[in-house]
Every structure is written in structure tokens, then in C-alpha cells.
Design a protein around this nucleic acid. Structure first.
Lengths: 349, 349
DNA sequence: TTGAAAGCGCTAACAA
DNA sequence: TTGTTAGCGCTTTCAA
């Protein structure tokens, strides 16, 4: 396929009886070229169907004009909204974007990082796989001074200089748990993902802090760690059913697990929130649709993507950028029926 | 940033007292090079931190090793699962992937197409914006023989040669509507998006065919065309409430609108399925969570992405590829409670 | 205001 | 089995 010879600046030069350098300048609107000449060059280029050869340009200028994103999975409603935000910003600023998924595995993540490096991305946006324990595999980027911006799933490591965009997960976990306590819950179960991952670790820390502050002793039995997805509920509820003294509240570290827990509880005739109140995390669309409506932490995915992308692009434009900034976005507790033990049920929000 | 001089094959050649071409060959495991030499070259390259320069290689070989995807939006649970499938396959085959969103606008789509073209993608995967009326803006690709694979939102145009991956939307619309008729519905409302878009147009055609076959005259009042999203229900139900003889069934051309319709109906005390039965389209996770469970058309997003990507890569590998193939994936009607007027409600599936 | 020439790093045809 | 050489298309320095 794709045989036809490309039109080059030499072809344009010949057609116009100019030199290639003049054409090159004209095409980029160089001030040293006479307006008329520039005009002629651009017209001719269009007429001949000229298309600039990015490789030659990049080779010459040693720039790729491309940014990379690596994230655990694209088919997650939260993560895809983050990428949507990233893509929008990056595109706006005239960069290209290459994307890959780590499928929640450090090993795949390493491969992706190499690929990005070899593609000579000028900057990298990354949300870590849940089993990533350190940032060593990003060494090649740090070593060459290619800026890396971590978002959402980050790792703080004083050794490496990079920017992060996050929310205050500990505070959010604290807010969620405190809300359950205010609603009268005393035995609150935590359902979370791999604690190697900052988001779950911190949400868990916030949960424990809230319990401690209210003098509630924390019962190991009430900690349930697993992969969080649409099946989490099956296993979590199975565990609950076997307990001598079951929980009266659940804080699940993401919405899909929270929703699956609610579905499963309902199937076993356990009432939500009367028997067990539930709070989730993320405020995905689902949480407004399920009955009872899911109380959850709202958390701006699209915005997080836009901020991460803007920050990276900003760094790229600076000669002496600050590389260790941490940007913390706001979160809010959105109260719906799934946690309202006290007041009469309001209309779904 | 990024000042350090790169290691090139010349540096390796010098260090090893070889020529650059030998190094180039060794690096790619060329059979003509002695095993021992190859080994030495590779070791040295690693030791020196050599990183191959893709631009020079691409410039020389006139290949980019990159594929492009353009789709309406990344933050849609269906579309993001398609991209997830695409990314996986493309990555597996060693290509890079660049992605952009048209935000459902032909104009943005045109810009994206140009960018992809300028990035010299070797092939393009595209799901059209809903207001795209023809494929003229893809001319540059066809003209240069760069293969284009359309998926999901396609346009059939005998003028252009390209491959499509779709489902049989008309049949699916027919299936959905027939099911409602079997359940005893006689006044069935169609809720769809812009009919310029093949998926809505065909689902509508299937709907009308089913009505016609059952001798149900079709009432213009029962056709509701709008942007399909989480707010569609508000407007659709508003219309229903004003009708003299309201529908007893609704076929909504995607799940998010179907779900929003159900929520809105319930809020107005209209029972689903008793008063109005509802069928959606896509089988997103949501449809299993809402109550009553949403009857819908299952439609394999991830698989569609994988098939589209594989097809494109296959074409790229052929000297005389067949470019006008249409691949039709299976769909199935998934029956849940939202449409079960007749039988007692089964357990949610 | 324009042109000549060198070179970015790599590959491949041809020669040895 | 290895080396020589030319050139992919562009930008940029230096000269005119």
C-alpha cells in the first residue's frame, strides 16, 4: 500500500524556483521571508497537496510533540472520564497523545513505560497499577529529565521528583466513615482494594482515624480487602452472613463494589440502610440509579485529567519547572438514601 | 530539559570497532551477522544505554508504526470498552495507538482526521460523530491507500472502500420491538438519537418493521428523537404525560436513556413494566443494577474493538487486501424485568 | 531577503 | 560476514 511519492519542500522549491530553505521558512511563516513569497509558497504547497513530514522534522529538532498516558484500565467509568479530560487538554495544546493500559499489573506497566520512552514522548501522565510498589521503573524518564505527572494512583517517593494530582483520600475516607458514625453506625466494615495502592491505603487510614476519634475499637474482622469490582459484593456479603455480630455500616472504597454489595444485601433480605448503611466512593452515574441511592464521595475525574494534562504542559514550557508539586483537588460527600438511618428518606438527588 | 547527547549506533560502532551498519543489523538480529558479534553489539548497546531513534528509523523506512482511533467520546461506558479492546490488540501487535475524541461533532472529527493524517498513522479506526453525513473528509486516507476501518457508527458509501465492524442494528431493533409486542404492548414508543446516525436509523427501521409485521399502525406521536443521555428521561416522560393515549411500551435506543426513562417514570408513579414496559440497548452494567432490571440488547463492545483492530492489522499485512468487507457481530436480547408484562417476575439476571 | 550546505540517526543497496 | 556510501525530508548556520 501507500506507494505514491510524497510531495516534499524540494518539489515546491523547484516549482517555484526557490530554495528548499526558503520554502521551509515560508511554510512556517518566518519573518525574514517576503510576504509575497510566503503567500506563493503556502498556496503552492496547498495546490500540490504537500504534507509535512513529521519524522524528518522531529529527527531534526529532536522533539516528538507527543505525550503519553498510562493507566490501569480504559473501561472504567471513572478512568475513562479522566482520559477524556486529558485528551481534550492535550489536543487543545496541539500535542498528540498515545495511550496504554497497564491492566493493573506492574509488569505490563513496565513494558508500557519502555514503549512510551522509545516513542520519545515529551512527557508522561501515569496512574499506577495497584501492585506498583515503587517508581524505579520510571528511572529512565527521571534520568533524562522527561517530566512525569502522576494522577490519582500515585506513589510519594522523596527520591524521585514528580508532580502528582490527587484528592485527599484520607480525609475523604474519614468523611465517609464519620458520616456513617453520625448516622448511628458502630460496627463499620471497610471494603477496599490492595492496600499497596495509595488510594485504598489512605481511605483505610481515614476510616481508622474516624473510628479512633469516636472511640470505636477497630475489629480486624471488619476489614475486607479484595479486588474491587462488580462481584465484590458476593464475597463480602458471604463473609457478613457468617459473622456473629455483623456490621451495621459499610464503607466501600469504590462505587462498583458498593453497588454490588447493596444488590447482594438486598437479595439476602438485608435492608439498606436500616440494617446496614452503605457509603461508596467516586460518584459514578450508577450511584444515582441504584435503589437506595448510594451515598458516596464525589471526585472529579474529568477535571483531574484536565489538571494533570495542563500541569504537564505547563512544566514542558518552563525552563526551571517545579517538579515536586502535589495538587490536591476537592472532594465532597454526596448523601443519598443508602446511609440515611436517621432522617426520613429524601427524594433521590 | 533533556540536554544530554543520545547514544547512537555510531557510538556503539566506535566502541566496538565495527561499522554502523553492522551495529544496525546486529541490533535487529540480522541473520547475516555472526552470533557472537550480535551478542556483543546488544550487550554494548544495553551497557551504553542506547535507545533507538524512532524518527530516524521511520523517516528512513517511511513507516510510523502507529494506528489512530477517533471516536465520539471516551467517557461512555460502551465506547471506552471498545477502546480498551482496541488498545489491547494494537499493543499486542507492537503498534502504537493515538486516540482522539470527536465530541459528536463532524467539525472536530475533520480536525482529528487531519491530525491523524499528519501523524502518518498507518491505519485508522473510526466511529463516526452522530452528525457525520458522508465520508468525504476521509478522502485523504482513501487517496493514499491508508486503510480505514469503521466500527459501530458507520456509513455505507459505495464510493469509498473501507471495512466496517458493526452489529445488525435493524435486526436488533426488530428483536427488541417484537419482544415488547409479544409481551402485549400495542402502543410502543421509540426513543432514539439523531437519525443521521446509522445505529439509530437502523434501530428505528427495525422497530417500524416489527410494528408493520404485527399490523400495528405507526403513530408519529410515538417517535421521540433527541440526544440520548441521562437526561433524556425528563423530556421523554414529560411528553408522555401530556399524551391522550400514552404508550404501553418503550424501546429506547441506548441504555442510559432507557435507565433515565425508568427513573423518571417511577418518580411519576408509573409502574414499569405493568403500565409501561421498557427495553434498552447496549447491556451496560447499569442495566443490571436498576430496578426493575432493564431488558436490553447485548452488544459486545470490547470484542468489537478487538475485531476492528485485528481487521485493520490484518489488512496492513496484506498486499492485496479486501477493503470492503463488513463484519457483523452477534447481538442478543437479554430479558430482565422491565419488559415482563406477562410472566411473573424472575430473579434478576 | 534568499541560498548553499551540512547533518539529525538510521537503513539498505552494493561492494568487498 | 562486514563495510562503504547515499539518502530519507527537514531545519539551521553561515554566507551572499
Amino acid at each position: 500500500m501507500n506507494q505514491k511519492k510524497e510531495v516534499t519542500i524540494y518539489d515546491i522549491a523547484k516549482a517555484l524556483n526557490l530554495s528548499a530553505s526558503t520554502v521551509s521558512r515560508g511554510l512556517r511563516n518566518h519573518p525574514a521571508i517576503r510576504k509575497e513569497t510566503t503567500r506563493k509558497i503556502i498556496d503552492k504547497a496547498r495546490a500540490m497537496g504537500y504534507q509535512q513530514n513529521t519524522f524528518a522534522r522531529n529527527l531534526r529538532k529532536n522533539r516528538s510533540n507527543t505525550l503519553g498516558v498510562i493507566l490501569p484500565r480504559l473501561d472504567s467509568s471513572f478512568q475513562s472520564s479522566v482520559v477524556a479530560g486529558i485528551e481534550k487538554k492535550v489536543n487543545q495544546k496541539g500535542y498528540n497523545l498515545i495511550i496504554s493500559q497497564s491492566h493493573e499489573s506492574v509488569e505490563k506497566e513496565k513494558v508500557n513505560i519502555s514503549t512510551m520512552y522509545n516513542s520519545r514522548v515529551e512527557g508522561l501522565l501515569i496512574s499506577l497499577a495497584c501492585d506498583t510498589r515503587d517508581l524505579n521503573h520510571l528511572d529512565m524518564f527521571f534520568g533524562k529529565g522527561i517530566p512525569v505527572v502522576l494522577f490519582d494512583r500515585v506513589k510519594v517517593d522523596s527520591h524521585y521528583k514528580c508532580t502528582s494530582v490527587v484528592i485527599d483520600n484520607k480525609k475523604a475516607g474519614y468523611d465517609a466513615t464519620s458520616h456513617l458514625i453520625e448516622q448511628g453506625c458502630r460496627r463499620i466494615m471497610f471494603i477496599g482494594g490492595n492496600l499497596v495502592c495509595n488510594v485504598y491505603k489512605e481511605r483505610f487510614a481515614g476510616y481508622r482515624k474516624a473510628l479512633a476519634e469516636h472511640g470505636i475499637s477497630d475489629d480486624k474482622q471488619l476489614t475486607f480487602i479484595d479486588i474491587l469490582n462488580e462481584e465484590t459484593g458476593t464475597f463480602a456479603v458471604e463473609k457478613i452472613l457468617k459473622m456473629d455480630s455483623p456490621p451495621d455500616g459499610i464503607f466501600a472504597a469504590n462505587d462498583s463494589s458498593a453497588v454490588s454489595v447493596i444488590c447482594e444485601l438486598k437479595q439476602h433480605g438485608i435492608r439498606v440502610p436500616e440494617d446496614i448503611a452503605v457509603v461508596g466512593f467516586n460518584n459514578v452515574h450508577l450511584s444515582r440509579v441504584i435503589e437506595p441511592g448510594l451515598t458516596t464521595i464525589h471526585y472529579p475525574g474529568r477535571e483531574m485529567g484536565e489538571v494533570a494534562a495542563s500541569t504537564l504542559i505547563e512544566i514542558l514550557g518552563q525552563d526551571y519547572p517545579v517538579l515536586t508539586k502535589t495538587i490536591v483537588l476537592d472532594h465532597q460527600l454526596v448523601v443519598r438514601e443508602s446511609s440515611m438511618k436517621k432522617k426520613p428518606l429524601p427524594v433521590a438527588g
